[in-house]
Design a protein around this nucleic acid. Structure first.
Lengths: 238, 238
DNA sequence: CGTCTCCTTGACGTTCATCAAGTATTGTGG
DNA sequence: CCACAATACTTGATGAACGTCAAGGAGACG
């Protein structure tokens, strides 16, 4: 599951990243686009706001936060992990609007915009795929706006955790116990709360036998109750 | 300025809508895409969340709000007016995620996705343009998230008004006195405030000789002070 | 000209931020 | 690998911004 293969057509993550939906023939063409796999360490920056954008990054492992700054104010827009695509919004203008910083060591596939542009003219399906990803991004941002504005601290926290859980589940990982190396400060920032509030909510979740998150290790004790807090509907387990 | 011309190549709004940046030749091709001009009345719905998406709409006049609903909760994501493009995020999946409702009678150009798809394969520049618009949309949503989370009621209000003012200014309209037919309720929703708070902030702005908004008519008395409230930087006036 | 919706203004309440101080954990250099 | 410094987390006390509730007034529409 975690094995790396250098070509898209044999890539273990094929279903997760943006090539999903392309035909075998097209995948072979896409292979040529891939720079080699790159590694970054915690604290490294994939790109800064204002940088010229040269490629998009498909995350193979690790964790990245995407944020913008205004004055002193840092605002985290999203976290990316295995199977996610970072930096796509820089494509059209060849300029990044955000900073992508590694918070847990990552391996990424870098895909050059130039080549992507070029080949997407020959593979219409890829173009549609890019537009689809952009659309999904917009929908996601708007959903996040709803969370930020209309949910209580407890709902925000529950929803955030469930998003992580569902991502892990969809990728076949253990989702009842896993490492989550994000600072409370960063979660707080993302959800527009304070670290203190995060701490209090987690203490409550723990007290009520819902879930614990200590020393970067999450243990889910009562998933159903967690869903109840989040107001999301719990999917049927297979 | 407000005159309607049925072909893109002679369209008075050429610089405002998504064809901006295309060459004359390409514009002629684009002409074929245009359905005739459509009119909608206040209260009409261009499309509903969940509808199959068939075209994108370029606003020629009037005002539209785009929103989603969850349970009873309506959430307004954006307002669109002259020169704006509505419904683009439905392109990839051919499905609308939001409802677009007319709040002041509109005239729109409807551009079919099918044809857009087809011709964008022949005009690479159009494709880039679509991606650019999507990117800008994402950036805009994230900026809005910042406003929702990190600004006071007064800053939100000032920023909202300035956005309207700058839009009118960029389109060559009177921006110190203009009609703004949006309900306080809708502004409140958009900014995550209550109508009461909107009312109080406007009363304050009025008291301080900044601006008045009564009977759907906005009069700007002190633009500089308004910018000061918003924390935005005032552009140099020509 | 009456009804309905929208807007205004005031009194009060709630959620979460802020401030503060102490404890745990992580990172670092010897 | 330990010591200690820096950073992160926890918990409590207090407060502020804006929401909620309420009631009256003004527009808009038929």
């Amino acid at each position: 599951m975690n094995q790396y293969s250098p070509s898209c057509s044999r890539c273990a993550m094929q279903n997760l990243c943006f090539v999903h939906g392309l035909h075998a023939n097209d995948l072979n063409r896409l292979d040529q686009l891939l720079d080699h796999k790159l590694s970054f360490r915690k604290g490294d920056v994939l790109f800064n706001a204002g940088d010229t954008a040269q490629s998009v990054y498909a995350i193979r492992s690790g964790l990245i936060k995407l944020y913008s700054t205004q004055g002193e104010q840092e605002l985290i827009h999203d976290f990316y992990l295995l199977g996610d695509l970072v930096g796509l919004e820089g494509l059209a203008n060849r300029q990044h609007h955000y900073t992508a910083k590694v918070i847990e060591d990552v391996q990424v596939c870098a895909v050059s915009f130039d080549q992507l542009d070029f080949i997407s003219q020959e593979i219409p399906e890829l173009n549609t795929q890019l537009l689809r990803l952009m659309s999904q991004n917009i929908v996601k941002e708007r959903q996040h706006a709803r969370v930020l504005t209309h949910k209580t601290a407890e709902q925000k926290m529950a929803e955030f955790l469930i998003e992580m859980i569902e991502k892990l589940r969809s990728r076949g990982y253990d989702y009842l116990q896993f490492r989550l190396g994000i600072l409370h400060r960063d979660v707080a920032n993302f959800l527009n709360l304070t670290p203190e509030t995060i701490s209090r909510v987690l203490a409550k979740f723990n007290r009520e036998g819902l879930l614990s998150w200590k020393k970067k290790e999450v243990k889910v004790m009562n998933l159903t109750k967690l869903y109840a807090y989040s107001q999301l509907t719990q999917p049927h387990l297979d």
